[in-house]
Design a protein around this nucleic acid. Sequence first.
DNA 1: ATAATTTGACCTAG
DNA 2: CTAGGTCAAATTAT
Length: 361
Amino acid sequence: MDCAFNWEYNTLINELTQGIEHTKQLRAYLSSMASTTTENQELLLQKILSSIEQSLLILKCSGSSIQSPQPVLQTCGAIESSVSVDGSPRSEDKKRSFKDHQEVINISKKRKSQPTWTEQVKVSAQTGFEGPTDDGYSWRKYGQKDILGAKYPRSYYRCTYRHMQNCWTTKQVQRSDDDPTVFEITYKGSHTCHQATNSALQPKSPENQEFKKQANYQTGQYSNQVLMNLRANLRVDTNDLDKNETAACSFSFPPTFSGLTDENRHFQISHVDENLMIGGGYSPSFVSPTTPESNYFSISSSCQMNGFGMVHNGHRSESDLTDIFSANTSSTSSPILDGEFSLDHFELDPNFPFDNPRYFS
DNA sequence: ATAATTTGACCTAG
DNA sequence: CTAGGTCAAATTAT
């Protein structure tokens, strides 16, 4: 390797490292003025940091065997050896025979020598998510797997243009066990495709949408959205505790309703079976001030236990239910039983796609 | 209609 | 054998 290249390479590394350092200093400075630091600023800082860190990573992966010192960049494969865009006639991708499959195996073995790195992405209350979640590429989910010892399943994505542009990048998304607002994204290989990289034109990367749902929940837009959908899709049984007849009627919220707040964002499970029934409790301020019992309604909903990590290889479990409802501190977990009607409160879990009408047939 | 996702089956490394 | 990664048919979204 010639000296000029080495010098330029090292200078570039130094510049990028300094960029990271200065950004961190700026962040420290801003957070020292707690009153003026906004979520947006933090998001921007995070974005800048991760852009620089990624650049550093790419540089190191492709140009040198120097170990990465950055915590965010956890692993780094060797030099990308596959310059194998040799135009050799790869047998057609449709109908995959065993032979074809072997070919794929060979390719994926080559893939192992491709750069791999991991990023931590934190969901933010204000902005929805931080970090490079919207990496400007579009991804197609091709698998989900329960991981031993991990609370949440791992999702597998490949580049949407794998076949069209022969781009073999993949990424895995794993939600963190200890901090559910953190997602670990592992990229494998770098894009060889040419995509419109304007993220505004690409709002639909899968985990992006997942994050946004979470954001909506946390900002309170979620609450309104949930309400709209509840209003539109749910039926409410005016099912008194002492009466068994259930007269379905449409439910309407008081005109003064402006979104769920901490005090009234409470639901409870009243019944569990093939079609999950959830109960809804509303704070007395929303309901005509009668008896305390009348403040509670049983909201019946055909609810597919599906998506967002709630189906674990097809097995429905009690933990699936607790995925939807996370217990309030004062609650016991016992109410999640068939037929039981407890007044214990549960908070809506941010993961459950309440804004997806298909869960409320 | 096409495109994307879901999810059990399949494959392989360890 | 098991765990993790991928495939692909069926299902769902657009």
